[in-house]
Structure formats: structure tokens, C-alpha cells
Amino acid sequence: MDQVVHAHWRHVYRWDLDKTYLDTRFETLSELVKIPFERAEDKVNVPGSATLLGELGRPQPDGSNSYIAIVSGSPRQMREVLEEKLRLDGVHWQEFHLKPQLRNLRQGRLRALREQVGYKLPLLLESRCRLDPDLAETLFGDDAEVDALVYSLYADLLSGRCGLKLADQVLAEVGATMEARRSCEQSLGHLEGQRKAGSDPVETIFIYLDRGSPPALFAPFGPKLVPVFNYYQAALVLFARGRIDAGSVLRITAAFLAADQCSPQELANLFQDIVRRGHLPYDLMEQLALAVHDQKEGLASAQVLWASAQRMLDLAELNSDARVSPSDSLDYLELLARLKTARGL
């Protein structure tokens, strides 16, 4: 396996496309049928996704860049239109994977048409083999499929919290192909050899609540996984973790306000919500206010900051509690069984 060690990669961001980056909701059968035939300019973004991805891909003053990898469950036949859509949004990517649905169909792998674990996990691990072992990652998925499970398993495999045996059990359970299982084995062997003690490359897993799932559904995945109602919340978490600066937060805030997607009051509620759920420190408001003041470009979002400060005061006494407890080791087979029951996988 070729290893690409690029000194200028600052961080890895992995994105799912459907329901995470693109709003592919449909209410009627005819709307569903239309999706594959939509032109790039007709594709609709999940609110804020393009702005956030744009900020994540922004080159840094030191010349470093983010490594953007996209793994989508859409068929490969849609590559042209999806790449065109990303170009229209100004997104630059390093990897773009689409599902070989036609091949699955030809080979009679009907289960593979819907199944995502056996498709995504080998791709993620293969991609990781090509990167510098010290690079940290942030992953974006949604609540419609099994992104939470795949990403968490990937994170645990990279850190060594679990190994090939469990990965193979999970892959066997979902009916993944031998090809996928062998690919995982090979990648994990490679990654095992280069793992440093205490290394835990996946920083954050964002799950966009496209289906409006209750956030508590994802509590078993632990504090690394952050369910978000929109990408304003994700931007705040990324700011708190030093992945984007205050300027980026302000531009994302402005984008939400300008598109009439949220009022200042609604953004303040979103701010309070993500703090209340324990994914952000209580002093984030102060950090953000100071950073904005330093940058002298906070006027447009002053109302949001003011309303958010009020909302933080409303939480006052809850302050000292830690609401997201560290995760114990996850029982992936149990989680998978639950998902299979819930989603008919």
C-alpha cells in the first residue's frame, strides 16, 4: 500500500453526501425517482453544509490544507453530476468514493445494494493507510443510515480499542463480501504496524440529525460522537476544539442569518442546546466573544452573541455538571442488532 505522507495536511475531514451534505429528502415516489436525474445546480444542500465544508477546506496562513474525503452511498453513475455540484459549491476534495451499485446488481449482491458497513469500513481503512499516522480526523454522517456505527468502529479500530476480530464479526454479521473482509484485514494489518501508543486519531464524529432522531439515541456511542441539529452547532464544536477560528464561525453564522434559515434567537437556542447537552464548555461563549472582539468583525453577529449570552445565563446553575459521560467500550454487535431491528437491515 502506498503511503502518502503530506507535510501540509492539517486535518482529515470525511463526509458522507446524501442527507449529510446534500438534502435528498423526498416526500413522494415521483420525487424519489427524480433524484438520480437532477442536474448539479438543482441539488440542494443541507443548510450550512457547503459553507462549513468551504471553511474547513480554507487554506491556512502557514500553507497547510485540510484533507477532504467523501464517501457516498450514491451509485458511481452519479459521479459526474455530484462532482459538478461540489465544484459549484467551491469544494476541493482529495478523495471521492461512490458505491459500485451496478456491479453489485450484476453480481447479484442484492444485500450489498442497501448495506453500508461492508462498503464504507474497508474504504475508510484503506484511505487511512495512505495518510500520515499522526493526522487527526473529523467525520460527518447522518442519522438515516449506520454512519454512527461505522464511524465509531473505525475510530476504535484506529485507536486499538478494538481489533480485526471484532471488525470481522461485524462484517460477517452484516453479510459483507469476502473481498470487503479481506480488504479490512489487510488495512488493519498495515495500520497496526504504524500505530503509536495512545494514538486516537478520530477527534469527533458529527451525526447530522436529518431524521430528527432524539439525541439520546446516540448516547451509547460516547462523547466522541456529537449529534447536531444543524451545522451551526458543528461549527461551534469545531471552534471549541481549535479546528476553525472565530472568523469561520462568524461567516457560518452570517450564512445562516442571510439565508433566513435561522433568526438570531434561534441560533442562540441552538447554541444553548449544544452546550446543555454537554458537547461544549460553558466558557465557550466567552472565548468566542473575545475572539470576535479581537478580529473586529463581529458586528453582523452581535445579536446572536448577545442572545446566546442570555441563553447561557439561563443555564447558570447547571454549569458544573458533565453531561456526556466517557464511553465504555462499545458492544458493536449489540448496537448492530438494534439497528437491524429498527431499520430492517
Binding site: 432524539p214 448516547a219 435561522c262 442562540a268 446543555r276 443555564l315 446553575e317
Partner: peptide, 14 residues
């Protein structure tokens, strides 16, 4: 947190 809700239209005063 155990409910489906829209946080834009909901806040808490502890």
C-alpha cells in the same frame, strides 16, 4: 434529549 425536537424553537431556563 430522549425526544425528537426542534432546538431552534426551544430553550431551557434552569
Amino acid at each position: 434529549d430522549a425526544q425528537s425536537y426542534e432546538p431552534r424553537r426551544l430553550s431551557l431556563r434552569h
